[in-house]
Amino acid sequence: MLRIKTPKSLRAKRELEKRAPRLVEFGKKTLLLHGTKTSNVLNAVLTEIYHLKKDNAVKYSRRNDNIRPFESGGETSLEFYSLKTDCSLFVYGSHSKKRPDNLVIGRTYDHHIYDLVELGVENFKSMASFSYDKRIAPLIGSKPFFAFIGEGFENNDELKHLKEVLLDLFRGQVVKNLNLAGLDRVYVCTAVSPTKVLFTHCALRLKKSGNIVPKMELVEVGPSMDLVVRRHRRPDESLRKEAMKIAPELTKKKEKNVSKDPIEGKIGKIYVPDQQVGSASLPFKPKGVKRERREAKEAKVEKKQKESEAKEGKESIKHSEKKRKKQKDDDSV
């Protein structure tokens, strides 16, 4: 007989249910890990990204020999870690002579690699090197603003991809309601050249301006670095299509015949079906309008027509039969 495995404790069950696929997803978790060798710069980059995303990230500190995201067979243990930690974003750091200070940012779908972007880190400035008023320091888990500057993010395929990945990496959870008092951080990305992006993290200070919208002031708090795009892998087209699916339950059906007007409010159109004059009830019915009579008359006419048709038909049939017989007789003679 079929055996099934269920968690032994309620806590384990709850934990498993948290990982199940759901209609509306929470924010993606991020896994930070590195290869056999890392540089000081890269260690700092990984820890600082971890600090930026501390509410929703897992950081591994051991070396990983067999992770090579771009090579086939090198993604197996990465996918396993993604499954184990339930992370669908990963940042992988490695340092080699060929690719110094290498950062691979990738996403997974269904715990399989979805897409990859490889970046070189240059001119890194850590958070500690910035001096600012600590009272404006961004809080963990606050919803960030994004500012993307430069035509490269639209025209250049690699940067366009990078923009999407960076947005996915840092945006956190999609929320329905936002507390405006909690806005305190901005990520600024500028496409300086076709392969180079300037990335920096700023704190936000809201200043009074006299009207409802406060004046924004950005204070650089770091980390700040230049990202040079090296290799990248776009998602498979069929996989992309599947990953972009929206649940049919969530899509709103278009409401027919209802429109909204700023002055008049909700306006509805009502369609009245054609009036059936024949079946309308009248206080006085003349003889001709009465249904029984009308119907009887119609029936009479129909009957007559049928009879006449039948007669004609019979005659025509007879004629044809006679003709046939004559022919047969002729043949036999």
Binding site: A20, R107, E164, K176, L178, A181, A243, M244, K245
Partner: peptide
Amino acid sequence: STEDASGPIVPLPPPTTKLPREKPLP
């Protein structure tokens, strides 16, 4: 916006930039 003890709360519209799901639809 609706005023809350911690600050004004604003209903956010759904994001227009489409990003992939992390797991398939249930």
